[in-house]
Each structure stands twice: as structure tokens, then as C-alpha cells.
Simulated scan of single mutants.
Amino acid sequence: MNWDWEKLQQRKEKNTFQVKGPDFSSFEKKIGNLKSKLPGGSVLLLIGILLWLLSGIYIVEPDEVGVVQRFGKFNRITPPGPHYHLPYPIEKVQTPKVTRIQRVEIGFRTLSKNLISKNIQYRLVPEESLMLTGDENIVDVQFIVQYQIKDPQYYLFNIADPEKTVKDAAEAAMREVIGNNDIDSALTTGKLIIQNDTKRLLQEILDRYHSGIRIVAVQLQDVHPPRQVIDAFKDVASAKEDKIRYINEAEAYRNDILPKTRGEVAQILNEAQAYKESVVRKAKGETARFLSVFKEYKRAKDVTRKRLYLETVEKILSNPQINKIILSDKAAKSVVPYLFLKNENGKLKGSK
């Protein structure tokens, strides 16, 4: 293609126009007229300069620190109290609240709070709360993260949106922790472990970002299965809780009955041992007594026989449980002897 450079040059000159800059000469004339009308123009100028210098005074509150920037670059940090910085635009100061604990909600948003009626309205955010567990189940996790400023320099200059950074990092950390746990642990006994693991992992992520943020706490607000199957999961969780309760009750019963049984066994063994000792000692004593009597019997048979007879009669007559009838030799010859028989109740037959 052949370009007609002369036509192009004419079109360019035709379409160009001149832009005139501001007429500073007229502006200087207006300022000169204004100074002539104001006799104290130099005084006003000094007052303006003084006010400009005084604009560098600032106060840092007790819960804040002052972060001074010089021409936009970080210069220094000032503690609470009155301070001075070079006036704008040379220096400017930011005062972040380093002691205030801030919170981020993940999986839900608080719409309104009524402290009097304790009525709190929420809006669910399922795209943040639905997560996949390690056993490939979907669980709805809603939690909050509390944090505060650890390093104001990093906090102000290393991250553009601290709240969004914390929210995105917290969501990523929670998804990783939930993915390493099964759904039973997330719904029942593993909530505390999940909170601690998420807090540790979230702090590691923010430290890698050099965000200057310290995580205070991660708190699970609500953990439940998807609403379509929540009733079935509740039944399963209830059955598992009943199982744990029954096991604990059985353990408690075992811990209660075993010591009692061991105590009763020890008591029976002690009583048997004591009975054994008493029987053995009694048998040894009777054996020794019999041997001594036998020794005396061999020395004097008649005397020993009569002594044994008298001791036996004495023992029988002194026993109140034995019914006794005493007859003389003469009476015994005229009496027909008979046998005393007892019935089932231990009484003589014929007696009432």
C-alpha cells in the first residue's frame, strides 16, 4: 500500500490545535492587588506558616501507636502520648489500634444485634462454610477468627486489605485441617483439636506473608452436616454418644464391682486361713492332751479310767441342753428302761 505522505501531513496540521497554559502573569497581578488591599498581608502569611507548622502536632492514644511516613516511606514508630511530625506533605502519621482485638466471620455474617432482646440475625455464606472432610463427607463449618496487630509496620505496608487477607487465609487453613479429619471427629470430640490446629496453621500462613498480625483465637460456632441429611447424621451421632455412655457406665460398674469382689475374696481367704489355723492348733492341742492322758493311763490304768469316767459324767450333767433323769440303783432295778426319741422339732415325742 502506497501512503500519500503529503495528504497525511496536511490532515495532521488540520486536526492539530494549540493548548495554552495558565496565564500566571494575570494570577500574579490579582495576588498583588489583594496584598495592596490587605495591609497586613505579610502577617497573614506568617500566621499561615505558623498554622502549617502547628499542624504537625498529633496525639497517640493509649491503645495506639504512631506510624510516621516521610514522603510516603516508613520513617519511625512513636509510642502513646503527644508528638510532632513535619507538616504535610513532608510527613504524615497513621495511628492503628494495636491492642484492639478484631474479628472475622467465616461461613456467616452478623446482620443485626439486639442486646436487649438478645435477638441476633445472621446470613449464611455456604460458599465459605461447606468443606470436605478426610472421609469424603461434606460438612458445614461456621467459625470466627480473632486477631490483633503484632507489627504495625508490616500490618500497614505489607498487606493491602488485612481483613480479607485474614478471612481468606483462615478459610484455607480450616479447609486443610477439616480435610485431615473425618466427619465424626468434626461433629463430636475433635472440635478443640480442629480449633488449635487451624490457629497454628493460620498463624504460620500470616507469618509467611509478613502481615504483622497475631491470631488470638479460632472459635467454631456451628459444625453440622448439610441440611438435607442433618437428621440422619444427628441420629448417628446420638447413637454413638449412647454407645460411649454405655461403655462409660459399664467401666464404672466394673471399677465398682471388682474392688468389692476382691475384698470379699480376701475376707473369705483370711477367714479360711484363720479357721485352718484354729482347727490345726485345736487338733494339735487335743493330740497333746490325749498323749498326756495315754501316758498317765499306762502308768495307772484304773485311776485314769475312773478319772475319765468322772470327767465325762461331769461334762454331761453340766450340759443344760441334755435331758437327764437321775435314778438310784434300787429305783433303776424296778424301772423299765426306754429310749428317748425326739421328733423333727427336737422335742420328745408325745410332748407339745
Rank of each mutant, 00 (worst) to 15 (best):
I322L: 10
N248I: 06
Q228D: 14
L339C: 00
I120C: 02
K260E: 15
Q102W: 08
E251Q: 08
N323P: 07
D235Y: 03
S351I: 06
V166I: 08
A252C: 00
L269Y: 07
L202M: 03
R281G: 10
R305W: 04
Y246W: 12
V19M: 09
K276Y: 09
L308T: 02
V19T: 13
F294T: 02
P80F: 02
I193V: 10
Y88R: 00
D23G: 07
L111M: 10
R76V: 09
F17T: 14
K30A: 14
N119E: 15
G72D: 13
P226K: 03
P320Y: 09
K234G: 12
V216C: 02
M131G: 05
L51M: 08
R227H: 06
V141L: 13
N255V: 06
S334V: 13
I247E: 15
N323V: 05
Q146Y: 11
Q69I: 01
L310C: 05
R307L: 05
E28Y: 08
V303Q: 10
E64A: 03
F294Q: 04
R100S: 08
A217C: 01
E61K: 01
K29T: 15
F24C: 04
Y209S: 02
W5G: 04
Y58S: 04
N75G: 00
K37H: 03
E277P: 00
F157E: 02
E91G: 09
K150G: 14
Y253R: 15
A332K: 07
G134D: 14
K118E: 14
K164N: 07
E91F: 00
L206I: 10
P80T: 02
R254I: 15
G263R: 04
S318I: 03
G263Y: 01
D23H: 11
K35L: 10
G72H: 09
R299H: 06
P80Y: 03
G41Q: 02
G107A: 01
R109E: 14
V139F: 07
S351H: 07
A173N: 07
I120R: 03
Q267P: 00
S25P: 00
H224W: 02
I322D: 06
D23P: 02
L269N: 15
L86R: 03
G32H: 11
P126D: 14
Q146G: 03
I57V: 10
P96A: 05
S36A: 15
N114A: 04
L156W: 09
L341W: 03
S292W: 05
G190P: 00
K92V: 11
L310I: 06
P62C: 02
L291A: 12
N255C: 03
K29C: 09
E311P: 02
I57D: 04
K118A: 11
D256F: 14
R307S: 01
Y246M: 10
K191G: 07
D231S: 09
S25G: 11
K324L: 07
G32W: 06
V280S: 04
R281A: 15
T188Y: 02
N248P: 00
P126G: 12
F157L: 05
A300N: 15
I193Q: 13
G32C: 09
R214S: 09
V279T: 10
V280Y: 05
I149V: 14
P82F: 04
I59D: 11
V68L: 03
Q273I: 03
N255T: 10
N248A: 14
G346H: 08
S36T: 15
E171M: 11
F74R: 08
